[in-house]
């Protein structure tokens, strides 16, 4: 059942701001609609009480991917399909391209937006691990102004973020890419296509003379929310690139995930597998073993 909400379609950010200013409770931003529309039909309590729906797809500024002083700005109405096809992102942020290509089906990727993917902070949001390792932040506007906030601070708890009512995320900001990083995004689903992530993770590593110079790693569906593991990153900087090191990294990730997540129904499966697959990922990408 589709509620009889009032539908707004601002054409500019200023118009959006003024609509946000007038809003009472029960307003929602509509971008892709791939969560909200079926949520109505399934009478999900998250959506049935919506009385105002603000469609941001007609705001040209939010429908753009820009390169500003080396930073890449991704508008909040940008879809996964648009991310996949963007050459700037393909070149500099390939993990994001890869993650985007694993989201849903073509029909979903043609509608669903990257911001919409994480703005609800569902644990299986595939865009989160790459954005976290790329140190992304987001721009939020409200009638009174705007603020920038790192993504890892924005995400609070499952289905909970720092977004306040009368606010709207307008951009993802990814800082200029560093050269020499090797990395990968990994997703495991139950079947070969259109799968919800059972496990997702992303890493970036900068290797110099067979030693780890810089290292970033973030989880997706294995922790309650997407999360960077700064302790692991710091602990392994300076270590020699070797299979032993990779195993240690993987097992340390296992320990940290267990610490963060505790035992859940799926832990018996997911925890061994995430360690194994991180190891495989490191060997394949950094260790130079093909396969």
């Amino acid at each position: 059942m589709i509620p009889q909400f009032k539908y707004y379609r601002p054409k500019s950010i200023n118009e959006l701001k003024s609509i946000l200013g007038d809003m009472q409770d029960n307003s929602r931003i509509l971008a892709g609609g791939t969560d909200i529309v079926p949520g109505f039909i399934q009478q999900s309590s998250r959506f049935t009480s919506i009385t105002n729906l603000i469609d941001i797809n007609c705001i040209a500024d939010l429908k753009a991917i820009k390169n500003v002083d080396g930073q890449v700005l991704i508008g909040s109405a940008i879809t996964f399909a648009e991310i996949m096809k963007n050459e700037l992102i393909q070149t500099h942020f390939p993990l994001l391209t890869k993650a985007a290509s694993t989201v849903g089906s073509i029909q979903i990727r043609n509608r669903a937006t990257v911001v919409g993917n994480f703005v609800n902070n569902a644990p299986c949001a595939d865009s989160v691990p790459p954005l976290l390792v790329y140190d992304a932040s987001i721009k939020i506007i409200s009638p009174n102004g705007e603020r920038n906030i790192p993504l890892n601070e924005f995400l609070l708890n499952p289905y909970e973020t720092q977004l306040k009512k009368n606010e709207c995320v307008t951009e993802i900001i990814i800082p200029a890419p560093k050269e020499n990083f090797i990395g990968d995004f990994y997703k495991l689903g139950r079947r070969s296509a259109v799968s919800i992530s059972r496990i997702s993770l992303a890493f970036l590593m900068h290797e110099e003379n067979k030693f780890i110079k810089e290292f970033k790693i973030a989880s997706g569906a294995i922790t309650p929310i997407g999360k960077r593991f700064y302790e692991i990153e710091n602990a392994f900087v300076g270590k020699e690139i070797s299979s032993e090191t990779f195993m240690e990294i993987a097992s340390t990730l296992g320990e940290k995930v267990l610490e963060t997540t505790g035992l859940r129904w799926s832990t018996d499966y997911k925890l061994p597998v995430v360690q194994q697959m991180l190891y495989q990922l490191l060997e394949r990408n950094v260790g130079g073993i093909s396969g």
């Binding site: 609609g33 791939t34 529309v37 729906l53 849903g104 029909q107 979903i108 043609n110 509608r111 259109v194």
Partner: peptide
């Protein structure tokens, strides 16, 4: 399926395949 999983409702909007069960009528204006 009404949740964008089966694709039986696929139509083309501005050259792109979409699930018409996930799009509001207003959005094809």
């Amino acid at each position: 399926c009404s949740i964008g999983e089966c694709g039986a409702c696929t139509v083309i909007v501005n050259g792109k395949a979409v699930n018409s069960c996930l799009v509001l009528a207003q959005q094809v204006d």
